[in-house]
Design a protein around this nucleic acid. Structure first.
Lengths: 196, 196
DNA sequence: CGCGACGTTGATTTGCCTCAACGATTGTGG
DNA sequence: CCACAATCGTTGAGGCAAATCAACGTCGCG
């Protein structure tokens, strides 16, 4: 079980690679271990990576002028994390990316991604399918955030991400579903009471 | 100025096509004119198109059990519209797509898209970049919907879409920015008063 | 002409936030 | 290993943004 097995599986579900192609792909990735609570990206910086998570847990969030944070997404082993806007246009980022656990990453920087797409154009398809899935997920999430109540958003979050939820604090979940931590606490109390 | 010029321009900003490739591309598209207030897709149907809008205005929306509608997106000439989830997985849709004006479309159905990607793999890149842009837009929109007030969302909608906004009714805009039509009206009055 | 969407306005309600305070747990440096 | 700080979850009081409900005028369209 070496560090590329997870990412190779992920790629293999979309496109087939020869042995040499796989080696080239691996050579373009940088392996990195980071401690929990490390900033991978801060507002104002240019995001120079798309990171595949081999192990760990990461959050992406915005921070408004008065310091309030809203979580855009969580990512765990098997998924990718980046600020697409900043990465693709090489412009300053509006968000932060932070590890929530000790993590192990495979990083693809801008030059490496360009070279990868150039040398193995089939990766265009891989990234297209990845983006398509992300877009579908975000559409669903947007709809939930405007059409559902806070309690519906919370219970469907627990339903949809049963393995992720236990790894997060209540505060992080609250910032993701769009309520204050205090209100989430009150909701939980209410839901518990109702079950007895 | 024939019906393919807009779509050819859109494609040309991402990938270069030979004359034969362009002809093949055109042959896979179906041209269709539809009257205003036509349903292109209803909840429960399988979406079998990605539509490029040559002329017109279209909205995509969800409809909950009690009949309340929330607009996911608007699309006008030069952009694409589809239910990606339903189209890509060929599963029943959760949304509706409706023309708001008489429109002229170029439709790519599932088989045609598959064939297009098969015969001209460079289109993988085109669709990847299209998806990337949509994802970035939706991320920004999601952030606005949770972090900004209704008035901020309204004014930035007017700012961002100066050509689109005048073509929509207040009710449609309200359903897009996530407020009730009544409240939008009150906001507008308040904003007007403040200017005097 | 008359019907149905649309925009407006007011009265009332409510979902969720803010602020403040407090234990419990976790982490950290001496 | 202990003391202290920091973070986290909880609870209560009070407030506000926005929803809901109801009523009414206007306009475009069949």
């Amino acid at each position: 079980m070496h560090m590329f097995s997870t990412i190779d599986d992920a790629v293999a579900t979309c496109i087939a690679l020869s042995a040499e192609e796989r080696l080239l792909f691996h050579s373009l990735l940088k392996h990195r271990r980071v401690r929990k609570r490390t900033w991978l990206l801060q507002e104002g910086e240019i995001c120079n990576f798309e990171a595949f998570i081999v192990k760990g847990c990461i959050r992406v969030f915005y921070c408004d002028e008065d310091g309030a944070e809203t979580n855009l997404s969580f990512a765990i082993e098997g998924s990718w994390v980046s600020d697409l806007q900043s990465f693709s246009a090489q412009t300053p980022s509006l968000m932060f990316i932070e590890t929530l656990e000790d993590s192990e990453l495979l990083l693809l920087d801008y030059r490496a991604k360009t070279e990868l797409l150039d040398r193995i154009p089939r990766f265009e398809r891989f990234f297209r399918l990845l983006l398509q899935q992300s877009l579908i997920t975000l559409q669903t999430r947007w709809h939930a955030s405007v059409a559902h109540t806070a309690e519906q958003r919370y219970t469907s979050f627990l339903d949809r991400y049963p393995t992720l939820a236990p790894r997060l604090t209540q505060t992080q979940i609250a910032r993701f579903i769009g309520v204050s931590p205090e209100f989430l606490s009150k909701m939980r109390r209410g839901m518990y009471r109702r079950m007895n």
